[in-house]
Design a binder for these strands. Structure first.
Lengths: 115, 115
DNA sequence: CTGAATCCAATAGGATACTG
DNA sequence: CAGTATCCTATTGGATTCAG
């Protein structure tokens, strides 16, 4: 049996460490639920600071999961939206989300946010 | 709907922060692949230190995902195995694992159409 | 073999204030 | 509105040593 850190699992660990940082899950979920502007994210994620929100958005953008667009209106609008990869991530995260919900005792009848 | 930090998503964030710590994904995967004794985990996870392996196992045990059993043989054996919850987690993590693999360009066992 | 203890460096995150 | 800059503390993780 070879080491599990050969070439396949580092990517998995990397993914976990990316989305395991504080607030990141919430930011991704906010994006999945339609947040686009900075203030929308901030309003949807209770307790997050500007600094961390900015940082998380940058990390997700660097990872190719969120797309930052500058709309030349007046005033300028900046939009953060999930890329195709980001949307695929949201889908891939759903079983884990369900698992978390069941564990925490909440009942999740049937409503699944995205998909 | 309500704020995403109402009562449902904290559990999700908590889960992400638990398995997002360094090595935790590897430890869970090692368990899923049959590791049971401390030394087996250590051998399967290249680069992890005793201290961190011990810490991760404790965290997973505290979360109810891994079960620690002392077998009174000579010398005493200590077994770390996934609980039912832990096994459910492994299953719930599979789509995320697949997503990571596709992203990193690795091939999945079965061919995945690119388009 | 299975850890616990200690020390240290790096990073993460919270609070606050300020800017184009 | 959409961030940046700073400061400061807490947490993390790596390395090494010791022990039952």
């Amino acid at each position: 049996m070879q080491s599990i850190n050969d070439d396949t699992c580092p990517s998995f660990e990397g993914t976990l460490e990316l989305i395991g940082r504080r607030w990141t899950g919430s930011v991704v979920q906010a994006a999945a639920r339609g947040a686009r502007r900075f203030g929308e994210y901030r309003a949807m994620i209770d307790g997050i600071s500007d600094r961390l929100l900015s940082q998380r958005l940058k990390e997700l953008e660097a990872a190719g999961l969120i797309d930052r667009t500058v709309v030349p209106s007046t005033p300028v609008q900046i939009l953060y939206q999930l890329t195709a990869e980001g949307q695929a991530l949201v889908v891939a995260l759903q079983p884990l989300s369900q698992w978390s919900l069941r564990r925490s005792g909440s009942r999740v009848t049937k409503e699944v946010p995205v998909g």
